[in-house]
C-alpha cells in the first residue's frame, strides 16, 4: 500500500470502493446496547469528524470568496475585460494591464506541455506495455521520488545549466541560422532567461506527474482487449495504437490536463529562469513575466500603492480559476467515461 503521487488523481477503476449495502452499515448502535461513556465518545468523535470535514469541504469556497472579495476594489474601478486585455502595467499611474502576464503564462505553460506531452506519453506507454517487469519496478519508484523534488531545485538547475546553454549557445545559433522562423529567432541578444528556459524547466517538472498518472491509466486497460487484438495478428504497436490508447484516452487526457494545471500555477521554478520582463514575448528567446511570478515578486511589498494588492489578488484569482476549471475538466472527463462504461 504505497502512497505515491499516483493517488494525486482519481482514475477510472482506481477508486472503485466496495459499496457497502446500507443495511450492513454498522456501528450506529442503540443506547441500550452500549455503555454511556462509550456512546458519548462515539457521538463526540462523529461530531468532530463531521465538523472538520465540513470545514475542509468549505475551504475551497472560502479561498475563492476571500480572493474575490479582495479583488473587488479593482474590479469596481476597472471592468474585467479592460484589465485582461490592457497591455500597460504601471501601478503607480493606476494602470493595470494583465495581458503581458497572461500571455507570458500561456507561452511558458503551453510550451512546457508541447515538450512534455509526447515524451511523457511515449514513456508511459513504454513503461506500461513494453518494459520488462524488472525495469518497471526500478523506474516507477524513481518517477515517484522525482515528483517530490522541490521546485526551487528545478529552478536552480535551470539557472545553472539551461539558462547558460540557451544564452551562450542556442540563442546565438538560432539568431544565425533560424532567422526565417518567426518564433525561433531571438529579436535581440538573449540572456538565456527566457520563455524557452521556463518551458524546459516546467516540462521537466510536470513529467513525473504526467508519466505516473498516464502509466497507471494504461495499466488499467484490461489484458483481454490487448490479447484480442494480438491474436488477430496485430503487432504490439498496432495493439497499443488501436486498443490501449483508445481505451485509455480519457484517462490520458486527464493526465495531461492535470499536468497543465500543475504547470500553470507553478511559481518558483519559472520565476527563477524566465526573466520577468513585463512585455509580450515575441519569440522563445524573449523573457516573459508569468502571473505567478508577478504575484511572488510584488505581493507583500508596496502595499501603499492604491489598488496594487487588489490587482495582485485578482491575478491570484485568475490563476485559481483557470486551475480549478482544468481540474474540474479532468474530473469530468474521467467521470463521463465511467458513466459511459456502466
Amino acid at each position: 500500500m504505497g502512497v505515491s503521487i499516483r493517488q494525486g488523481s482519481r482514475l477510472p477503476g482506481v477508486d472503485a470502493a466496495p459499496a457497502v449495502p446500507p443495511d450492513r452499515r454498522r456501528g450506529e448502535l442503540s443506547p441500550q446496547a452500549v455503555g454511556s461513556g462509550r456512546l458519548l465518545r462515539e457521538r463526540f468523535s462523529a461530531a468532530l469528524i463531521t465538523l472538520v470535514s465540513a470545514l475542509v469541504g468549505l475551504l475551497t469556497l472560502v479561498v475563492i470568496a476571500a480572493l474575490f472579495l479582495r479583488s473587488l476594489p479593482i474590479l469596481r474601478q476597472h471592468p474585467l475585460p479592460e484589465l485582461v486585455t490592457g497591455t500597460v502595467w504601471k501601478p503607480l499611474a493606476g494602470q493595470f494591464g494583465f495581458w503581458p502576464f497572461i500571455l507570458g503564462t500561456l507561452w511558458v505553460t503551453v510550451l512546457a506541455m508541447v515538450i512534455a506531452t509526447p515524451v511523457c506519453l511515449l514513456t508511459a506507454v513504454y513503461l506500461a506495455e513494453y518494459a520488462r517487469p524488472s525495469t518497471r519496478a526500478l523506474v516507477r519508484p524513481l518517477v515517484d521520488v522525482l515528483a517530490g523534488i522541490p521546485s526551487v531545485v528545478y529552478g536552480l538547475f535551470g539557472v545553472l545549466l539551461i539558462v547558460p546553454f540557451l544564452g551562450d549557445d542556442l540563442a546565438p545559433f538560432a539568431q544565425r541560422h533560424w532567422g526565417f522562423l518567426p518564433w525561433l529567432s531571438p529579436g535581440e541578444v538573449s540572456t538565456g532567461y527566457c520563455v524557452l528556459a521556463g518551458g524546459i524547466v516546467l516540462a521537466l517538472m510536470v513529467a513525473p506527474v504526467i508519466i505516473a498518472v498516464a502509466e497507471e491509466v494504461l495499466e488499467s486497460v484490461p489484458a483481454g482487449a490487448r490479447e484480442a487484438s494480438l491474436s488477430l495478428g496485430a503487432t504490439k504497436w498496432e495493439t497499443v495504437k488501436h486498443v490501449s490508447l483508445r481505451l485509455a484516452l480519457p484517462g490520458l487526457v486527464a493526465s495531461v490536463v492535470l499536468g497543465f494545471a500543475r504547470a500553470f500555477g507553478e511559481t518558483m521554478a519559472v520565476l527563477m529562469v524566465v526573466g520577468n520582463v513585463a512585455q509580450s514575448p515575441r519569440s522563445l528567446f524573449d523573457p516573459a513575466y508569468p502571473l505567478p511570478a508577478l504575484i511572488a515578486n510584488n505581493y507583500g511589498e508596496m502595499m501603499s500603492i492604491p489598488l496594487y494588492d487588489s490587482a495582485l489578488l485578482l491575478a491570484a484569482l485568475m490563476l485559481l480559476t483557470v486551475v480549478l476549471v482544468f481540474n474540474l475538466l479532468a474530473e469530468a472527463v474521467v467521470w463521463a467515461r465511467k458513466r459511459a462504461g456502466q
Partner: peptide, 10 residues
C-alpha cells in the same frame, strides 16, 4: 490542484 502561490496569497 490549487497552486501554492495562491495559498501564499490567501
Amino acid at each position: 490542484g490549487i497552486p501554492s502561490i495562491v495559498y501564499g496569497a490567501f
